[in-house]
Computed example of a mutant assay.
Amino acid sequence: MPRTADPQRRTELLRAVVAYLEERGVADISLAPMAEALGTSKRMLLYYFGDRGELVAQAMAASRPNAGEIFDGVASADDFVAAAHTLWRAITRGRQRRSVALLLQVLSLAITDPDTYQPYADDAVTVMLDPIAAALMGLGFEKADARARATLVVSGLRGLCQDGLVTGDRSRVDAAAELLIAAAVAP
Protein backbone atom coordinates (compact mmCIF):
# COMPACT_ATOMS: atom_id res chain seq x y z
CA MET A 1 0.00 0.00 0.00
CA PRO A 2 1.50 3.38 -1.02
CA ARG A 3 2.33 5.89 1.66
CA THR A 4 0.21 9.06 1.79
CA ALA A 5 2.13 12.27 1.19
CA ASP A 6 2.60 14.42 4.28
CA PRO A 7 1.14 17.84 3.33
CA GLN A 8 3.08 19.65 6.07
CA ARG A 9 6.37 18.11 4.93
CA ARG A 10 5.52 19.01 1.33
CA THR A 11 4.82 22.64 2.31
CA GLU A 12 8.10 22.86 4.24
CA LEU A 13 9.99 21.27 1.36
CA LEU A 14 8.38 23.64 -1.16
CA ARG A 15 9.48 26.65 0.93
CA ALA A 16 13.01 25.27 0.99
CA VAL A 17 12.93 24.62 -2.78
CA VAL A 18 11.81 28.21 -3.42
CA ALA A 19 14.64 29.58 -1.25
CA TYR A 20 17.15 27.28 -2.97
CA LEU A 21 16.04 28.37 -6.46
CA GLU A 22 15.97 32.05 -5.50
CA GLU A 23 19.54 31.76 -4.26
CA ARG A 24 21.01 29.51 -6.97
CA GLY A 25 18.76 30.08 -9.98
CA VAL A 26 17.00 27.64 -12.26
CA ALA A 27 19.20 27.40 -15.35
CA ASP A 28 21.34 24.47 -14.27
CA ILE A 29 19.32 22.91 -11.48
CA SER A 30 19.92 19.30 -10.74
CA LEU A 31 17.73 17.46 -8.29
CA ALA A 32 20.50 15.46 -6.58
CA PRO A 33 22.54 18.48 -5.39
CA MET A 34 19.33 20.32 -4.51
CA ALA A 35 18.11 17.39 -2.44
CA GLU A 36 21.44 17.16 -0.63
CA ALA A 37 21.41 20.89 0.15
CA LEU A 38 17.84 20.59 1.45
CA GLY A 39 18.59 17.56 3.61
CA THR A 40 16.37 15.20 1.65
CA SER A 41 16.73 12.82 -1.28
CA LYS A 42 16.13 13.13 -5.00
CA ARG A 43 13.51 10.41 -4.62
CA MET A 44 11.58 12.53 -2.10
CA LEU A 45 11.69 15.58 -4.38
CA LEU A 46 10.27 13.43 -7.18
CA TYR A 47 7.68 11.96 -4.80
CA TYR A 48 6.40 15.38 -3.75
CA PHE A 49 6.82 17.31 -7.01
CA GLY A 50 6.78 14.82 -9.89
CA ASP A 51 9.70 16.02 -12.00
CA ARG A 52 12.11 18.94 -12.32
CA GLY A 53 9.73 20.96 -14.49
CA GLU A 54 6.81 20.51 -12.12
CA LEU A 55 9.08 21.43 -9.20
CA VAL A 56 9.97 24.72 -10.95
CA ALA A 57 6.31 25.40 -11.77
CA GLN A 58 5.21 24.78 -8.19
CA ALA A 59 8.04 26.90 -6.78
CA MET A 60 7.07 29.79 -9.06
CA ALA A 61 3.39 29.45 -8.14
CA ALA A 62 4.21 29.40 -4.43
CA SER A 63 6.43 32.47 -4.62
CA ARG A 64 4.37 34.92 -6.67
CA PRO A 65 1.71 37.33 -5.44
CA ASN A 66 -1.91 36.33 -5.99
CA ALA A 67 -3.01 38.85 -8.61
CA GLY A 68 -6.55 37.47 -8.55
CA GLU A 69 -6.80 38.28 -4.87
CA ILE A 70 -5.13 41.69 -5.23
CA PHE A 71 -7.41 42.83 -8.09
CA ASP A 72 -10.60 41.22 -6.79
CA GLY A 73 -13.29 43.79 -6.08
CA VAL A 74 -11.78 46.59 -8.19
CA ALA A 75 -14.74 48.87 -8.92
CA SER A 76 -13.11 52.14 -9.96
CA ALA A 77 -9.93 53.52 -11.52
CA ASP A 78 -8.79 54.52 -8.03
CA ASP A 79 -9.33 50.94 -6.82
CA PHE A 80 -7.30 49.68 -9.77
CA VAL A 81 -4.45 52.09 -9.02
CA ALA A 82 -4.47 51.01 -5.37
CA ALA A 83 -4.41 47.32 -6.37
CA ALA A 84 -1.55 47.92 -8.81
CA HIS A 85 0.39 49.71 -6.07
CA THR A 86 -0.20 46.72 -3.80
CA LEU A 87 1.18 44.44 -6.52
CA TRP A 88 4.18 46.74 -7.02
CA ARG A 89 4.96 46.77 -3.30
CA ALA A 90 4.61 42.98 -3.15
CA ILE A 91 7.10 42.38 -5.94
CA THR A 92 9.59 45.04 -4.86
CA ARG A 93 9.34 45.15 -1.08
CA GLY A 94 7.20 42.24 0.02
CA ARG A 95 8.12 38.61 0.49
CA GLN A 96 7.79 38.01 -3.27
CA ARG A 97 10.57 40.44 -4.19
CA ARG A 98 13.19 37.67 -4.24
CA SER A 99 11.00 35.56 -6.51
CA VAL A 100 11.10 38.22 -9.22
CA ALA A 101 14.67 37.19 -10.06
CA LEU A 102 13.47 33.59 -10.35
CA LEU A 103 10.66 34.66 -12.67
CA LEU A 104 13.02 36.74 -14.82
CA GLN A 105 15.33 33.72 -15.17
CA VAL A 106 12.49 31.46 -16.29
CA LEU A 107 11.25 34.04 -18.80
CA SER A 108 14.75 34.41 -20.23
CA LEU A 109 15.27 30.66 -20.38
CA ALA A 110 12.00 30.31 -22.29
CA ILE A 111 13.64 32.24 -25.12
CA THR A 112 16.70 30.00 -25.37
CA ASP A 113 15.14 26.70 -24.23
CA PRO A 114 11.44 26.93 -25.09
CA ASP A 115 10.87 23.16 -24.95
CA THR A 116 11.73 23.15 -21.27
CA TYR A 117 10.69 26.57 -19.99
CA GLN A 118 7.98 27.98 -22.30
CA PRO A 119 5.04 26.34 -20.47
CA TYR A 120 6.20 27.80 -17.15
CA ALA A 121 6.80 31.22 -18.69
CA ASP A 122 3.35 31.18 -20.30
CA ASP A 123 1.73 30.25 -17.00
CA ALA A 124 3.66 32.94 -15.11
CA VAL A 125 2.38 35.60 -17.50
CA THR A 126 -1.20 34.30 -17.73
CA VAL A 127 -1.82 34.05 -13.99
CA MET A 128 -0.96 37.72 -13.65
CA LEU A 129 -2.48 38.97 -16.90
CA ASP A 130 -5.92 37.38 -16.66
CA PRO A 131 -7.10 38.85 -13.32
CA ILE A 132 -5.73 42.29 -14.18
CA ALA A 133 -7.47 42.23 -17.57
CA ALA A 134 -10.69 41.09 -15.87
CA ALA A 135 -10.49 44.03 -13.46
CA LEU A 136 -10.01 46.41 -16.38
CA MET A 137 -12.95 44.89 -18.27
CA GLY A 138 -14.99 45.43 -15.10
CA LEU A 139 -14.09 49.11 -15.39
CA GLY A 140 -15.57 49.20 -18.89
CA PHE A 141 -12.54 48.65 -21.12
CA GLU A 142 -13.16 46.42 -24.15
CA LYS A 143 -11.53 43.00 -23.92
CA ALA A 144 -8.67 43.69 -26.38
CA ASP A 145 -7.93 47.07 -24.78
CA ALA A 146 -8.12 45.59 -21.27
CA ARG A 147 -5.67 42.81 -22.22
CA ALA A 148 -3.29 45.37 -23.77
CA ARG A 149 -3.48 47.53 -20.64
CA ALA A 150 -2.99 44.47 -18.41
CA THR A 151 0.06 43.59 -20.50
CA LEU A 152 1.36 47.10 -19.92
CA VAL A 153 1.01 46.57 -16.16
CA VAL A 154 2.42 43.03 -16.02
CA SER A 155 5.29 43.45 -18.46
CA GLY A 156 5.97 47.04 -17.47
CA LEU A 157 6.21 46.34 -13.75
CA ARG A 158 8.28 43.22 -14.41
CA GLY A 159 10.68 45.27 -16.56
CA LEU A 160 10.91 47.92 -13.87
CA CYS A 161 11.69 45.20 -11.33
CA GLN A 162 14.54 44.07 -13.54
CA ASP A 163 15.78 47.66 -13.87
CA GLY A 164 15.67 48.04 -10.09
CA LEU A 165 17.54 44.77 -9.54
CA VAL A 166 20.24 45.81 -12.01
CA THR A 167 20.64 49.49 -11.13
CA GLY A 168 19.47 49.69 -7.52
CA ASP A 169 17.88 53.06 -8.35
CA ARG A 170 14.70 52.59 -6.34
CA SER A 171 13.41 56.17 -6.50
CA ARG A 172 13.63 56.41 -10.30
CA VAL A 173 12.07 52.98 -10.76
CA ASP A 174 9.28 53.74 -8.27
CA ALA A 175 8.54 57.00 -10.13
CA ALA A 176 8.34 55.09 -13.41
CA ALA A 177 5.99 52.54 -11.79
CA GLU A 178 3.71 55.41 -10.73
CA LEU A 179 3.54 56.66 -14.31
CA LEU A 180 2.95 53.19 -15.71
CA ILE A 181 0.14 52.43 -13.25
CA ALA A 182 -1.58 55.75 -14.02
CA ALA A 183 -1.27 55.10 -17.77
CA ALA A 184 -3.00 51.73 -17.41
CA VAL A 185 -6.32 53.38 -16.51
CA ALA A 186 -5.93 56.65 -18.44
CA PRO A 187 -8.69 57.21 -21.02
Rank of each mutant, 00 (worst) to 15 (best):
L21C: 05
A84M: 12
Y20T: 05
T92Q: 09
Y47G: 00
A133V: 03
L152S: 08
V153N: 09
V127I: 15
K42T: 05
G159Q: 10
Q8C: 02
G138Q: 06
A19K: 07
Q105C: 05
I111Y: 13
T40C: 07
A32D: 09
M44P: 00
G94H: 05
M34R: 01
I29E: 06
G156K: 09
Y48S: 00
Q8L: 14
E178N: 13
L21V: 02
N66Y: 05
D174A: 11
A84C: 12
A176L: 13
A82W: 01
G168S: 08
Y120P: 00
L103A: 12
L45F: 02
S171Q: 14
G39H: 02
D28C: 08
T86A: 11
S41L: 00
A16H: 01
R172F: 08
F80C: 09
G138L: 11
L45G: 00
T151P: 01
L109I: 15
Q58Y: 05
A75Y: 07
A32M: 07
A146W: 01
H85E: 15
D115W: 08
Y48N: 10
A37R: 15
P131I: 01
A83T: 07
L14Q: 06
Q118S: 14
D115T: 06
I181E: 03
A32G: 01
T151F: 06
L31W: 03
V106E: 10
A90P: 06
V166D: 13
L103E: 07
A121D: 11
